[in-house]
């Protein structure tokens, strides 16, 4: 009996996630790892935005492989996601997000994940997407650099903004970026995206 209930619940979740879409701004350590987690979880559609190519130094934390060095990140990540789930619908934009049009690729997604690197561009992206897409849920991260101190990370919710946040972390200009903490925050962002998407059905799914 219990087994059947669980099956029903997981079918409902699968269905809901399969119909949902997530946009990811930036495909570095945060974005590439969040995308992989969401592909495995069963998100039906992803919009991926980055302007960069894969470099050897990225492999310390980003979800790419040696034989992908020199490829566009949007293409390399698409390959990796399709190896996990070939049915996922992926839209890619090989472009640099510029002020005044940053929200454009994400107009139709259910949740936007901010996965950019520089503090200034992060702040600008959050500001623009929240003000131009007031009904959109935006997940962001601040304070990924360093190692250890997992317990300092918290979720801060401000209206439609969900921040994965360690206010005591140093800037990546002054501290190392390493796989465990970057992937921790990337998965934290992905987990928040699932919570937002499934949230409205939380009780119905129980």
């Amino acid at each position: 009996m219990v087994k059947n209930m669980n099956l029903e619940k997981s079918e409902k979740i699968k269905k809901k996630l399969g119909r949902s879409s997530v946009g990811i701004a930036g495909l570095g350590g945060l974005g590439s790892n969040a995308a992989v987690a969401l592909a495995r979880a069963g998100i039906g559609k992803m919009i991926l935005v980055d302007f960069d190519i894969v470099e050897k130094k990225n492999l310390t934390r980003q979800y790419y492989f040696l034989d992908q060095i020199g490829k566009l990140k949007v293409d390399a990540l698409r390959e990796n996601l399709e190896k996990i789930n070939p049915e996922i619908i992926i839209e890619t934009y090989n472009l640099k997000l510029e002020k005044n049009s940053m929200e454009k690729p994400f107009i139709d997604v259910d949740v936007v994940i901010e996965a950019l690197d520089r503090a200034e561009i992060k702040a600008a992206f959050i500001e623009e997407s929240l003000s131009k897409l007031p009904d959109k849920h935006v997940v962001a991260a601040s304070g990924v650099a360093g190692y250890g101190n997992s317990d300092r990370i918290v979720t801060k919710r401000l209206g439609n903004l969900y921040m994965c946040y360690d206010e005591h972390a140093l800037s990546s200009d002054d501290d190392v970026l390493m796989a465990p903490r970057v992937a921790l925050m990337a998965n934290w962002e992905a987990n928040l995206a699932l919570e937002i998407i499934l949230g409205e059905d939380k009780w119905a799914l129980k």
């Binding site: 350590g29 974005g31 992060k122 601040s142 990924v144 801060k156 206010e167 972390a169 800037s171 970057v182």
Partner: peptide, 10 residues
């Protein structure tokens, strides 16, 4: 008022 501090890294 909520103030969030943005820190580089991603």
């Amino acid at each position: 008022v909520a103030v969030i501090h943005m820190i580089s890294g991603g």
